[in-house]
């Protein structure tokens, strides 16, 4: 019963059969549609990227690990037995997007985020990631996996005393909403944005999200 479940998104009215190989034309069409959907849902920019465009940076992960006031199972990502870089690089394509934040928004790192307006901005990134992930899954890209921003505990479990799955044997209380962030997986979203020549936005603050599609 390990299938993906979602709460942010509506019912999937079309479910595609899993194919033995990806149809390149259909894949391109789907990637374009996913970018459009990200924009329609509130992203400022969204592009289809190659898995090779995902930049991993050990300094990002060190920063996340040292920001340990509000630890969660996703901050830093608990992935002890396997190699996250190997997994991400096994994808062909992803959708990289950004959402505009509020002027004067600080870098919250692992959180907590007390400002509800700011929290809502991060919430938007999780919402888009979840929607894209669910859509991709039912398009037949069954391994689609999304990465959001900051620490999901700061967004969804700010009032909880602890992140439950950090206790051995306990499950996440918001499994359908929480996602690991790009930085918690060691990804350098700022460098990726620079590599794509994304210009700064007017109010100066952006939040990044990533969906690895297939």
């Amino acid at each position: 019963m390990g299938q993906a479940m979602t709460q942010f998104v509506g019912k999937a009215d079309h479910v595609r059969r899993i194919l033995p190989a990806i149809d390149p034309k259909q894949f391109e069409t789907d990637l374009n549609r996913l970018c459009e959907m990200a924009i329609e849902s509130g992203a400022e920019t969204a592009v289809a990227i190659d898995a090779g465009d995902v930049v991993f940076n050990s300094e990002v992960l060190e920063r996340v690990s040292s920001d340990d006031a509000f630890l969660s199972v996703h901050w830093p990502l608990n992935y002890p037995k396997d190699d996250i870089i190997e997994a991400v690089k096994a994808y062909r394509k992803g959708i990289f997007f950004r959402v505009t934040g509020d002027k004067g928004m600080p870098e919250y790192g692992g959180g907590p985020i007390r400002n509800a307006v700011h929290r809502k901005k991060y919430f938007k990134v999780y919402e888009i990631v979840t929607m894209l992930e669910s859509t991709s899954f039912y398009y037949g890209y069954h391994l689609a996996a999304g990465f959001a921003a900051e620490n999901c505990r700061a967004i969804f479990c700010a009032e909880e005393k602890r992140c439950l799955p950090m206790l051995k044997g306990k499950a996440c209380i918001h499994p359908n909403k929480g996602r690991p962030s790009m930085e918690a997986a060691g990804m350098d979203a700022n460098t990726m944005a620079k590599n794509f020549d994304w210009k700064p936005v007017e109010n100066g603050f952006v939040i990044y999200g990533l969906l690895m599609v297939a």
Binding site: V73, A87, L143, F147, P165, K170, A171, G178, R179
Partner: peptide, 19 residues
């Protein structure tokens, strides 16, 4: 065998992941 499959058990978190 594909490393993405185990990742997928955790994104989004399957209710049994970790339990």
């Amino acid at each position: 065998i594909d490393p993405r499959v185990r990742l997928k058990c955790m994104i989004p978190k399957c209710y049994m992941s970790g339990s």
